[in-house]
Write a protein that binds this DNA or RNA. Structure first.
Lengths: 127, 127
DNA sequence: GCCAGTAGGTACCAATTCGTAACTTGCAGG
DNA sequence: CCTGCAAGTTACGAATTGGTACCTACTGGC
């Protein structure tokens, strides 16, 4: 292909950057988590589950995820319209990473808790 | 409004959220990547490598990472002061996940490129 | 004597972002 | 007839955020 000069910026960490920019969105992980654990859902269902998100945000996040090919949007033009969102195979590829992240996060949480209880036990006057 | 300390937003699926909030920062992954690949570095070195980040941002990101225990800050009060940053063991735990993410990102990029070249082959007159 | 460099801190400014509220279409219920 | 739900879209506004410029303290070079 172009072994010559694609003006690739020096970002060797770029593919990761793209994917992180996706997960970065404030509610993104909640949405993915819900789609994963509760299966395909309609807009209102999802909105009720995420609890706190505004319709605008949810729409925007879903569009972004759809654009990245992580979420599929099924629109049925019935009255009232029924829009169902589900994870694509790409979306499911992320499950693993998210699970991994959650694992690390949980481990750290546990370690921190242990650390705090150790300090709480003896250090009241130490500092 | 609320005179009592309202416990901010409480979320059930949170351990991952914490860790993602860390990686979310605009430059965070670049910083971690550089610390990983080039080893412990001084502030100016890091700043030159990341190329484009402002001192303010870099400082703030490093403080956040330090606070989370991912990065260690060694301050030697020489003249001029020498401050060296390095990954902690926790920081290295993230290497795996970031590598995993980069892998997925790269794979998707490749797939997308293949997709585009397939379309490019036949659709020149289609639009 | 002045400037550059090291490792930042602070003030201010512009841009982005997220939430709230109002509007959309078509039908069902009171 | 009016309201509400479905799944949004749009307008407006407030808050956060990231960049730029300027400040520190100290020393070595010209």
């Amino acid at each position: 292909m172009n072994t010559t000069a694609e003006p690739r910026k020096e970002s060797a960490s770029c593919p990761m950057d793209f994917i992180l920019r996706m997960l970065m969105g404030p509610w993104t992980t909640y949405i993915l988590y819900n789609l994963k654990t509760h299966g395909p859902q309609r807009f209102g269902e999802l909105k009720r589950r995420v609890a706190g998100i505004s319709a605008k945000m949810l729409t925007e996040r879903l569009r972004t995820l759809e654009g990245a090919g992580l979420v599929r949007r099924d629109y049925e033009a019935t009255i009232p319209p029924r829009v169902t969102y589900s994870l694509t195979s790409r979306g499911h590829e992320l499950d693993d990473v998210l699970g991994y992240l959650a694992e690390i996060g949980t481990r750290w949480e546990t370690e921190d808790a242990a650390q705090r209880s150790l300090q709480g036990a003896g250090l009241k006057a130490a500092e």
